[in-house]
């Protein structure tokens, strides 16, 4: 408060605008959480900001009327394994590109980089055909595979791997360590910030992924959270009133992990996002 008084008029305006804008940004979150505690009748009445009571009925209904816990487990499995595999694959490749000299290196790297231009939506038809021919429809594996070697991740890993001092690698080499051991014991620990950045981004993207699971998954029990949630309002029984309350409870539960992770480790997430931007 004492400090506020020293702000210039311009700074005052800025603070007000930013905070009012921030209130608007928060509004959907507040609405989501508040609606998740409202009964159906309450929701259908003219909007009120706060629920009449903190009744957890919608949350209970979520778990009893839909296989919500299955969706959570599915989403967790997909996000975790996608992340782990992506970290393995991209760090190996990124490291190889940074620290080995081999034939075709430049071209192979260029091909990878150019693939960031491929928009994912154009792949969904062939991916659907391929995964179904492989007998992987409705399987969680089909949800992971297309995302376990993100080119942008290889690029990020490559950048970080190049910071690993060659002297370290050479001395390990002289001590008789194999390439794989050097990678795991020496390079990987140095690349931890990049792994953290990519890991968080991959996890969150996978958790929120909608288009591909919508196509690949067709059974309620194999659904991930976003598909299951979307299905709550649009699909299943045409003819019953949309269960807005449980949908908002689901939305709240879906947002909590990603927002919490983000708030806890903002730094890594932002570093991962901007690594490509500032350097390029």
């Amino acid at each position: 408060m004492r400090k506020l008084s020293r702000l210039s008029a311009g700074a005052w305006v800025m603070n007000i605008v930013v905070w009012v804008g921030g209130a608007f940004m928060l509004l959907p979150f507040i609405w989501m959480v508040s609606s998740s505690f409202k009964t159906t009748e309450e929701i259908f009445q003219p909007a009120t900001f706060l629920p009449k009571s903190l009744d957890g009925g919608n949350y209970a209904r979520l778990f009893s009327s839909w296989p919500f816990s299955r969706w959570i487990i599915n989403s967790l499995i997909v996000a975790l394994f996608t992340t782990l595999l992506a970290l393995m694959i991209t760090s190996l490749a990124g490291y190889a590109f940074a620290k080995f000299r081999f034939k075709g290196r430049g071209k192979l790297f260029a091909v990878l980089l150019s693939s960031t231009m491929i928009p994912f939506p154009i792949l969904v038809v062939p991916l659907f055909v391929i995964t179904s021919r492989l007998g992987m429809t409705n399987s969680l594996i089909s949800l992971m595979l297309p995302f376990i070697a993100p080119p942008i991740g290889i690029f990020l890993m490559n950048q970080y791997a190049s910071y690993v001092p060659n002297a370290l690698l050479d001395s390990a080499k002289i001590d008789g360590a194999g390439d794989l051991r050097i990678f795991f014991q020496i390079a990987l620990p140095i690349m931890v910030p990049a792994l953290a950045s990519l890991g968080i981004i991959t996890f969150i993207n996978s958790w929120n992924n909608f288009l591909w699971p919508l196509i690949a998954i067709r059974q309620e029990l194999s659904m991930t959270l976003p598909i299951g949630m979307a299905n709550m309002l649009t699909g299943v029984s045409a003819g019953s009133a949309p269960p807005y309350g449980p949908a908002m409870a689901a939305s709240t539960l879906v947002c909590i992990p990603t927002v919490a992770i983000f708030l806890a480790v903002q730094k890594y997430y932002i570093q991962g996002l901007t690594a490509g931007a500032v350097k390029q």
């Binding site: 804008g21 921030g22 940004m25 928060l26 509004l27 959907p28 979150f29 609405w31 989501m32 609606s35 929701i43 259908f44 009445q45 003219p46 909007a47 900001f49 969150i204 958790w207 929120n208 909608f210 959270l225 976003p226 949630m229 979307a230 309002l233 807005y244 949908a247 908002m248 689901a250 939305s251 709240t252 879906v254 947002c255 990603t258 927002v259 992770i261 983000f262 708030l263 903002q266 997430y269 932002i270």
Partner: peptide, 28 residues
């Protein structure tokens, strides 16, 4: 935190929320 949080929010969750906010009858 307030301005950045939307980035990591599920598009489905937030679109459903906006669907309610914009509802003709009971939307805020």
């Amino acid at each position: 935190a307030i301005y950045f949080a939307p980035i990591v929010t599920s598009t489905v969750a937030i679109s459903q929320t906006f669907m309610m906010l914009f509802n003709t009858n009971f939307g805020l």
